[in-house]
Simulated assay, not measured.
Amino acid sequence: MTDYVAELLEKKVAQYNQPDFIPYDPISIPHQFSRLQDIEIMGFWAAVLAWGQRKTIINKCNELIQLMDGAPYDFVKNHTEQDLKRFLNFKHRTFNATDTLYFLHFFKQYYAQHSSLEWAFVQGLAPDETHVEKGLSSFHNLFFSLEDFPERTRKHIATPMRKSSCKRLNMFLRWMVRKDDKGVDFGLWQTLQPSQLICPCDVHVDRVARKLGLIQRPTTDWLTALELTENLKQFDPTDPVKYDFALFGLGVEGEM
């Protein structure tokens, strides 16, 4: 069974880890940019907003880009209080203007001190850590370290401390960290390594992984994401999260 699963997943990685995958996925949003900070800002936002229909997610992210005059990093660094009024009607599901304004506030404060968002995820991570759990927890604490942050926004930034599988943050890290020559993931960050990533557990990945025997845990939480990733390391210990393409693709296409 293990050989069959390995062969199937490798075949599907080759099929789905292709540029043709990009236009129909939220990763198309950061692919509109070439500047590191623009990719980080819109990659992060696209990942956080990634629930619901993919077409709607992409449309909402493009709306954000337009509100930021097509230049997210420049807007984050230089916007005025007057500029923020245009965001008061922005909404995607339960993500509203309050959340949007806090994201802009955090980004402005953060990029005034750092050149890349990677530091936010590695500042709480020891070099020898096998995975990013402590980095995700430290990022959550950093994100909500500004004075008078809105408590409601916490629900949009997951953390292993709340036992969440952290699907959206793990997807964002996959985009930023994974390195190959296929042109889908960006591979821009150098400190975090692909071997430290945790597989995003969305409904498609979770369902297919269970059918393939890669998940035994009855509920879907942080320990489930760890279990799946450890099992995927049987097939590729240096880059287990590449199989996200295969599991997600199998689920979306209904092949399982």
Rank of each mutant, 00 (worst) to 15 (best):
M1Q: 10
T2E: 15
A6C: 05
L9C: 10
L9V: 07
K12E: 15
K12Q: 15
A14V: 03
A14L: 05
Q15R: 15
P19S: 02
S28V: 03
I29F: 03
Q37C: 11
I39F: 03
W45D: 06
A47R: 01
Q53H: 13
I57K: 01
A71L: 09
Y73H: 14
N78H: 12
F87S: 05
N89S: 15
R93D: 02
T94Y: 13
T98F: 05
Y102W: 09
Y110V: 00
W119F: 06
A120I: 00
V122R: 02
Q123I: 10
P127G: 12
E133M: 08
G135Q: 08
L136I: 10
S138C: 15
S145I: 02
K155W: 10
K155Y: 14
T159K: 00
M161R: 14
K163L: 10
K179N: 11
D181K: 04
D181Y: 03
V184D: 07
Q196N: 08
L197I: 05
C199M: 04
C199L: 03
P200D: 10
V203Q: 11
R210F: 05
L212N: 11
T219R: 12
D221M: 02
A225D: 09
E230H: 08
Q234F: 09
T238F: 13
A246S: 00
E253R: 08
M256K: 10
